[in-house]
C-alpha cells in the first residue's frame, strides 16, 4: 500500500462565503490508518484496519459536525438523528475526495490505499466498485475542496432521518447550506449555471453506496471475526 501521486484541482475565484470558509476551517486533520505490523496480511487484517480507522474518523466527524454553522442550534436528538443516518455518507465522501486524481485506487488514509486486487482480497470488491463510481463522477466534475466541504455538510443536513423532531430547523440548515453551495459555485464557475444542480445530483449515488457499505459492515459484525470499536458498532446498530 503506497502513497499515491495526488493531483489537486485548483480553484479559480476567491471564496468569500462565510459558511464555506467556516467549513473549510472546520475540516478535520488527516488521520492515519496505521495497520498493525504484527498482524499477517489477510482479509481480517484489512477489515480490522478499516474498522479502526472508521471509528477514529467518526470521532473527528462528530466534532466537525458541531462546527457546521447552525448544526449545534438543532436539538441534541435531532443532531443525533442526522448523524445516525448520514455518518457513512460522510466517511465515504471523505474517502472519495482523497481518492480524486488517484488512478483507480481508494485512499482510505495517506498510509492506506487500496487497489482493486487488494479490495478483492478484503472481500470489498462491490464496495470498491461503487465508491470508484463516485470517484469517477467527481473527477469528471472536477470537484473543488470548497464544494466538497459544502456538499459533505449538505449530505448531513439532508439525511432524511425518520426521527427528526423539528423539521423547520433542519430545513433552515439545509437552505443555508444550499445557498452557500450556490453562491460558491457562482464564484468558482460563473459560466456554468447547472453546476450546483449537478453536484446535488451526485448525492443519491452517495446514499446508495453508503447503504451498501453499512449493510456490508453489518454482515461483517454478525460474522464476528473482525474486532470493532464501540462508536462504530453503535452507529452500525443505529441502522
Amino acid at each position: 500500500l503506497s502513497l499515491p501521486q495526488k493531483k489537486t484541482f485548483l480553484g479559480g475565484g476567491h471564496v468569500e462565503n462565510k459558511v464555506v470558509s467556516h467549513l473549510l476551517g472546520a475540516e478535520p486533520e488527516k488521520i492515519y490508518a496505521m495497520p498493525d505490523p504484527a498482524l499477517p496480511d489477510s482479509d481480517i487484517k484489512a477489515l480490522t484496519t478499516l474498522c479502526d480507522l472508521a471509528d477514529r474518523e467518526l470521532v473527528v466527524n462528530i466534532g466537525w459536525a458541531k462546527h457546521i454553522p447552525g448544526f449545534s442550534s438543532l436539538s441534541l436528538p435531532d443532531q443525533m438523528s442526522l448523524l445516525q443516518s448520514a455518518w457513512m455518507e460522510i466517511l465515504i465522501l471523505r474517502v472519495v475526495f482523497r481518492s480524486l486524481g488517484c488512478e483507480d485506487q481508494l485512499v482510505f488514509a495517506e498510509d492506506y490505499v487500496m487497489n482493486e486486487e487488494q479490495a478483492k482480497l478484503a472481500g470489498l470488491q462491490d464496495l470498491y466498485t461503487a465508491i470508484l463510481q463516485l470517484v469517477r463522477k467527481y473527477t469528471s466534475i472536477k470537484l473543488h475542496r470548497e464544494e466538497f466541504v459544502t456538499l459533505k455538510a449538505i449530505a448531513l443536513a439532508n439525511a432524511d432521518s425518520m426521527h427528526i423532531e423539528d423539521w423547520v430547523a433542519v430545513q433552515r440548515l439545509q437552505d443555508s447550506l444550499h445557498a452557500a453551495l450556490q453562491e460558491l459555485v457562482s464564484v468558482l464557475h460563473p459560466e456554468d449555471g447547472q453546476r450546483a444542480g449537478r453536484l446535488i445530483m451526485t448525492l443519491p449515488l452517495l446514499r446508495q453506496t453508503a447503504a451498501k457499505a453499512v449493510q456490508h459492515f453489518c454482515n461483517i459484525k454478525q460474522d464476528g471475526r473482525v474486532p470493532m470499536h464501540k462508536l462504530f458498532l453503535e452507529l452500525l446498530e443505529a441502522h
Partner: peptide, 20 residues
C-alpha cells in the same frame, strides 16, 4: 437514547455553537 451513549456524549462535549 441509552443505546447511543457515545454519540450522545461526543455531541454534548464542549459544544461551541456556530451561528453566522
Amino acid at each position: 437514547k441509552e443505546k447511543h451513549k457515545i454519540l450522545h456524549r461526543l455531541l454534548q462535549n464542549s459544544t461551541s455553537p456556530v451561528d453566522l
